[in-house]
Design a binder for these strands. Structure first.
Length: 298
DNA sequence: GTTGAGCGTT
Protein backbone atom coordinates (compact mmCIF):
# COMPACT_ATOMS: atom_id res chain seq x y z
CA UNK A 1 0.00 0.00 0.00
CA UNK A 2 2.95 2.36 0.44
CA UNK A 3 4.30 4.65 -2.28
CA UNK A 4 0.79 4.97 -3.73
CA UNK A 5 -0.46 8.12 -5.35
CA UNK A 6 -4.00 9.07 -6.16
CA UNK A 7 -4.98 11.41 -8.96
CA UNK A 8 -6.68 14.62 -7.95
CA UNK A 9 -7.85 17.57 -10.03
CA UNK A 10 -9.74 20.85 -9.67
CA UNK A 11 -12.43 19.44 -11.88
CA UNK A 12 -12.91 16.52 -14.19
CA UNK A 13 -11.44 18.24 -17.20
CA UNK A 14 -8.34 19.51 -15.49
CA UNK A 15 -5.03 17.74 -15.57
CA UNK A 16 -4.83 15.65 -12.43
CA UNK A 17 -2.07 15.93 -9.87
CA UNK A 18 -0.75 12.96 -7.98
CA UNK A 19 -1.19 13.10 -4.21
CA UNK A 20 0.64 10.64 -1.96
CA UNK A 21 -1.34 8.26 0.19
CA UNK A 22 -0.41 7.11 3.67
CA UNK A 23 0.98 3.70 4.47
CA UNK A 24 -2.45 2.40 5.38
CA UNK A 25 -3.89 3.47 2.04
CA UNK A 26 -5.73 6.51 3.31
CA UNK A 27 -5.07 10.02 2.09
CA UNK A 28 -4.74 12.96 4.43
CA UNK A 29 -6.93 15.93 3.68
CA UNK A 30 -3.89 18.02 4.52
CA UNK A 31 -2.02 16.32 1.66
CA UNK A 32 -4.78 17.38 -0.71
CA UNK A 33 -4.94 20.87 0.75
CA UNK A 34 -1.19 21.22 0.29
CA UNK A 35 -1.80 21.08 -3.44
CA UNK A 36 -5.27 22.59 -3.46
CA UNK A 37 -5.43 25.22 -0.74
CA UNK A 38 -8.84 25.48 0.85
CA UNK A 39 -9.87 21.96 -0.15
CA UNK A 40 -12.29 20.37 2.28
CA UNK A 41 -12.82 16.98 0.65
CA UNK A 42 -12.87 14.87 -2.49
CA UNK A 43 -15.52 13.48 -4.79
CA UNK A 44 -15.48 11.19 -7.78
CA UNK A 45 -17.72 9.97 -10.54
CA UNK A 46 -19.02 6.51 -9.83
CA UNK A 47 -18.24 4.53 -13.00
CA UNK A 48 -21.44 2.49 -12.63
CA UNK A 49 -24.02 5.11 -11.81
CA UNK A 50 -22.16 8.01 -13.47
CA UNK A 51 -23.11 10.05 -10.42
CA UNK A 52 -20.69 12.05 -8.32
CA UNK A 53 -19.92 10.52 -4.97
CA UNK A 54 -18.24 11.96 -1.94
CA UNK A 55 -15.12 10.35 -0.53
CA UNK A 56 -15.53 9.35 3.11
CA UNK A 57 -13.77 11.81 5.35
CA UNK A 58 -13.19 11.07 9.02
CA UNK A 59 -11.16 13.42 11.14
CA UNK A 60 -9.07 14.72 8.30
CA UNK A 61 -8.50 11.29 6.78
CA UNK A 62 -9.86 10.39 3.38
CA UNK A 63 -10.79 6.75 2.91
CA UNK A 64 -10.67 4.99 -0.44
CA UNK A 65 -14.04 3.85 -1.78
CA UNK A 66 -14.14 0.03 -1.59
CA UNK A 67 -10.66 0.23 -0.04
CA UNK A 68 -9.08 0.95 -3.40
CA UNK A 69 -8.44 4.35 -4.93
CA UNK A 70 -8.01 2.73 -8.33
CA UNK A 71 -7.14 4.96 -11.25
CA UNK A 72 -10.09 7.31 -10.95
CA UNK A 73 -9.54 11.03 -10.97
CA UNK A 74 -10.78 12.57 -7.76
CA UNK A 75 -12.17 16.07 -7.77
CA UNK A 76 -11.49 18.60 -5.06
CA UNK A 77 -14.33 19.88 -2.93
CA UNK A 78 -14.23 23.42 -1.66
CA UNK A 79 -16.42 24.96 1.02
CA UNK A 80 -19.30 26.57 -0.84
CA UNK A 81 -19.60 29.63 1.36
CA UNK A 82 -15.87 30.23 1.23
CA UNK A 83 -15.75 30.97 -2.47
CA UNK A 84 -15.69 34.69 -1.87
CA UNK A 85 -12.90 34.52 0.67
CA UNK A 86 -10.88 32.23 -1.55
CA UNK A 87 -10.60 34.79 -4.33
CA UNK A 88 -6.84 34.85 -4.51
CA UNK A 89 -6.49 31.16 -4.02
CA UNK A 90 -9.00 30.58 -6.80
CA UNK A 91 -6.90 32.77 -9.01
CA UNK A 92 -3.91 30.68 -8.09
CA UNK A 93 -5.83 27.51 -8.74
CA UNK A 94 -6.95 28.83 -12.10
CA UNK A 95 -3.38 28.73 -13.29
CA UNK A 96 -2.78 25.46 -11.44
CA UNK A 97 -0.61 25.20 -8.43
CA UNK A 98 2.37 23.26 -9.56
CA UNK A 99 4.73 23.26 -6.68
CA UNK A 100 2.59 23.08 -3.63
CA UNK A 101 4.81 20.80 -1.61
CA UNK A 102 7.72 22.16 0.27
CA UNK A 103 10.66 20.42 -1.24
CA UNK A 104 13.08 18.84 1.15
CA UNK A 105 16.80 19.09 0.63
CA UNK A 106 19.76 17.08 1.78
CA UNK A 107 20.88 18.01 5.26
CA UNK A 108 24.49 17.87 6.28
CA UNK A 109 25.11 15.95 9.49
CA UNK A 110 28.13 17.32 11.33
CA UNK A 111 30.04 15.70 14.13
CA UNK A 112 29.43 12.04 13.45
CA UNK A 113 31.53 9.51 15.35
CA UNK A 114 34.09 7.84 13.10
CA UNK A 115 32.39 4.52 13.60
CA UNK A 116 28.91 5.62 12.56
CA UNK A 117 27.64 3.85 9.45
CA UNK A 118 24.93 4.73 7.00
CA UNK A 119 22.77 2.05 8.58
CA UNK A 120 23.25 3.74 11.93
CA UNK A 121 22.17 7.04 10.42
CA UNK A 122 19.17 5.45 8.76
CA UNK A 123 18.11 3.80 11.99
CA UNK A 124 18.51 6.97 14.00
CA UNK A 125 16.83 9.42 11.63
CA UNK A 126 13.98 7.08 10.81
CA UNK A 127 12.66 7.80 14.28
CA UNK A 128 11.83 11.31 13.04
CA UNK A 129 10.17 10.40 9.77
CA UNK A 130 10.63 8.62 6.49
CA UNK A 131 14.24 8.80 5.31
CA UNK A 132 14.97 8.94 1.58
CA UNK A 133 18.75 8.94 1.64
CA UNK A 134 21.69 8.78 4.01
CA UNK A 135 25.39 9.14 3.27
CA UNK A 136 28.51 8.95 5.36
CA UNK A 137 31.38 10.75 3.65
CA UNK A 138 34.52 8.63 3.67
CA UNK A 139 38.10 8.89 2.56
CA UNK A 140 38.30 7.33 -0.87
CA UNK A 141 41.48 5.40 -0.07
CA UNK A 142 41.08 4.32 3.52
CA UNK A 143 37.33 4.21 3.67
CA UNK A 144 37.45 6.04 6.97
CA UNK A 145 34.56 8.29 7.82
CA UNK A 146 35.22 11.99 7.53
CA UNK A 147 32.89 12.51 10.43
CA UNK A 148 30.04 13.98 8.49
CA UNK A 149 27.31 12.84 6.21
CA UNK A 150 24.00 13.72 4.66
CA UNK A 151 20.41 12.80 5.23
CA UNK A 152 17.24 13.54 3.31
CA UNK A 153 13.67 13.16 4.48
CA UNK A 154 10.44 12.73 2.62
CA UNK A 155 8.58 15.40 4.52
CA UNK A 156 9.53 19.01 4.98
CA UNK A 157 8.03 18.96 8.46
CA UNK A 158 10.47 16.23 9.43
CA UNK A 159 13.36 18.23 8.01
CA UNK A 160 12.33 21.28 10.01
CA UNK A 161 12.11 19.25 13.19
CA UNK A 162 15.50 17.63 12.63
CA UNK A 163 17.27 20.91 11.93
CA UNK A 164 15.78 22.46 15.04
CA UNK A 165 17.48 20.14 17.51
CA UNK A 166 20.79 18.53 18.33
CA UNK A 167 21.25 14.83 17.87
CA UNK A 168 22.98 12.27 20.05
CA UNK A 169 24.33 9.75 17.59
CA UNK A 170 26.50 6.87 18.83
CA UNK A 171 27.58 8.93 21.81
CA UNK A 172 28.30 12.29 20.19
CA UNK A 173 26.25 15.41 19.73
CA UNK A 174 25.68 16.10 16.04
CA UNK A 175 24.13 18.99 14.18
CA UNK A 176 21.98 18.86 11.07
CA UNK A 177 22.06 21.91 8.85
CA UNK A 178 21.17 23.00 5.37
CA UNK A 179 24.36 22.53 3.34
CA UNK A 180 26.15 25.64 2.09
CA UNK A 181 25.61 24.50 -1.48
CA UNK A 182 21.94 25.18 -0.91
CA UNK A 183 22.15 28.10 1.42
CA UNK A 184 18.50 29.05 1.02
CA UNK A 185 16.70 26.28 -0.80
CA UNK A 186 13.25 27.33 0.25
CA UNK A 187 13.43 31.03 -0.48
CA UNK A 188 13.09 30.65 -4.24
CA UNK A 189 10.14 28.38 -3.64
CA UNK A 190 8.28 30.79 -1.46
CA UNK A 191 9.20 33.87 -3.38
CA UNK A 192 6.47 36.41 -3.89
CA UNK A 193 8.38 37.72 -6.90
CA UNK A 194 8.17 36.40 -10.42
CA UNK A 195 10.44 36.90 -13.40
CA UNK A 196 8.55 38.03 -16.48
CA UNK A 197 10.58 37.13 -19.55
CA UNK A 198 10.10 38.21 -23.17
CA UNK A 199 8.69 41.61 -22.23
CA UNK A 200 8.47 44.19 -24.97
CA UNK A 201 9.69 47.73 -24.66
CA UNK A 202 6.22 49.23 -24.79
CA UNK A 203 5.08 47.51 -21.62
CA UNK A 204 4.88 49.97 -18.76
CA UNK A 205 4.95 49.22 -15.05
CA UNK A 206 1.36 50.42 -14.84
CA UNK A 207 0.26 48.07 -17.57
CA UNK A 208 2.02 45.13 -15.98
CA UNK A 209 0.46 45.98 -12.65
CA UNK A 210 -2.97 46.24 -14.25
CA UNK A 211 -2.50 42.91 -15.95
CA UNK A 212 -1.18 40.94 -12.99
CA UNK A 213 -3.77 42.38 -10.60
CA UNK A 214 -6.21 39.76 -11.87
CA UNK A 215 -4.19 37.07 -10.10
CA UNK A 216 -3.77 38.82 -6.80
CA UNK A 217 -2.56 41.96 -5.07
CA UNK A 218 0.58 43.31 -6.74
CA UNK A 219 2.99 45.02 -4.39
CA UNK A 220 5.76 45.90 -6.83
CA UNK A 221 6.62 46.03 -10.50
CA UNK A 222 10.18 46.55 -11.59
CA UNK A 223 11.35 47.10 -15.16
CA UNK A 224 15.13 47.42 -15.53
CA UNK A 225 16.33 50.44 -17.46
CA UNK A 226 17.67 50.44 -20.08
CA UNK A 227 15.32 47.96 -21.68
CA UNK A 228 16.29 44.34 -21.05
CA UNK A 229 13.17 42.44 -22.15
CA UNK A 230 12.21 41.30 -18.70
CA UNK A 231 10.52 42.58 -15.57
CA UNK A 232 9.86 41.56 -12.00
CA UNK A 233 6.42 41.49 -10.48
CA UNK A 234 5.93 40.98 -6.75
CA UNK A 235 2.66 39.79 -5.28
CA UNK A 236 1.40 40.15 -1.74
CA UNK A 237 0.83 36.39 -1.67
CA UNK A 238 3.57 33.93 -2.52
CA UNK A 239 1.00 31.35 -3.57
CA UNK A 240 -0.14 33.58 -6.37
CA UNK A 241 3.42 34.11 -7.54
CA UNK A 242 4.23 30.41 -7.40
CA UNK A 243 1.06 29.44 -9.18
CA UNK A 244 2.06 31.58 -12.14
CA UNK A 245 5.54 30.15 -12.52
CA UNK A 246 5.99 28.20 -15.69
CA UNK A 247 3.06 29.87 -17.41
CA UNK A 248 3.13 31.63 -20.73
CA UNK A 249 0.85 34.63 -20.49
CA UNK A 250 -0.35 36.96 -23.20
CA UNK A 251 0.20 40.62 -22.40
CA UNK A 252 -0.55 43.22 -25.06
CA UNK A 253 -0.64 40.40 -27.57
CA UNK A 254 2.80 39.05 -26.81
CA UNK A 255 3.62 35.86 -24.99
CA UNK A 256 5.65 36.45 -21.87
CA UNK A 257 7.13 33.64 -19.84
CA UNK A 258 6.82 33.52 -16.08
CA UNK A 259 9.46 31.92 -13.91
CA UNK A 260 10.85 32.17 -10.43
CA UNK A 261 12.79 35.31 -9.76
CA UNK A 262 16.34 34.33 -8.89
CA UNK A 263 17.32 35.50 -5.45
CA UNK A 264 18.86 38.92 -5.62
CA UNK A 265 22.52 38.69 -4.74
CA UNK A 266 22.51 41.62 -2.36
CA UNK A 267 26.14 42.11 -3.17
CA UNK A 268 27.68 45.49 -2.48
CA UNK A 269 29.86 45.31 -5.59
CA UNK A 270 26.82 44.53 -7.65
CA UNK A 271 24.94 47.47 -6.22
CA UNK A 272 27.88 49.84 -6.63
CA UNK A 273 29.98 48.32 -9.42
CA UNK A 274 32.06 51.46 -9.99
CA UNK A 275 32.49 52.78 -6.51
CA UNK A 276 35.25 55.38 -6.46
CA UNK A 277 38.35 54.09 -4.68
CA UNK A 278 37.62 50.48 -5.56
CA UNK A 279 35.97 47.63 -3.78
CA UNK A 280 38.22 47.69 -0.72
CA UNK A 281 37.25 51.19 0.32
CA UNK A 282 33.65 50.38 -0.44
CA UNK A 283 33.76 47.32 1.75
CA UNK A 284 35.36 49.33 4.55
CA UNK A 285 32.77 52.06 4.27
CA UNK A 286 30.03 49.47 4.22
CA UNK A 287 31.39 47.78 7.32
CA UNK A 288 31.43 51.10 9.19
CA UNK A 289 27.96 52.03 8.12
CA UNK A 290 24.76 51.07 9.83
CA UNK A 291 23.28 50.06 6.54
CA UNK A 292 21.62 46.68 6.27
CA UNK A 293 20.60 45.25 2.96
CA UNK A 294 16.89 44.62 2.77
CA UNK A 295 16.02 40.99 3.37
CA UNK A 296 12.29 41.36 3.20
CA UNK A 297 12.03 40.31 -0.39
CA UNK A 298 14.01 38.05 -2.64
C1' DG B 1 46.18 2.57 13.38
C1' DT B 2 45.94 9.71 14.38
C1' DT B 3 41.55 13.94 14.05
C1' DG B 4 36.61 17.07 15.66
C1' DA B 5 35.52 22.26 12.35
C1' DG B 6 33.50 21.81 8.36
C1' DC B 7 30.29 21.30 3.25
C1' DG B 8 28.92 16.42 -0.81
C1' DT B 9 34.52 11.88 -6.19
C1' DT B 10 32.11 7.73 -8.14
Amino acid sequence: MSELYIRVAEDENEEPMEIPSEDDGTVLLSSVAAQFPGACGLRYRNPESQCMRGVRLVEGILHAPENDWGSLVYVVNYPKDNKRKMEEIDAASAVKIKRGFQKTSDLIVLGLPWKTTEQDLKDYFSTFGEVIMVQVKRDAKTGNSKGFGFVRFTDYETQTKVIAQRHMIDGRWCDCKLPNSKACPDEPMRSRKIFVGRCTEDMTTDELRQYFMQYGEVTDVFIPKPFRAFAFVTFADDQVAQALCGEDLIIKGVSVHISNAEPKHNNIHQLFPNFPGGSASLAAMFARSQYQFPSSHV
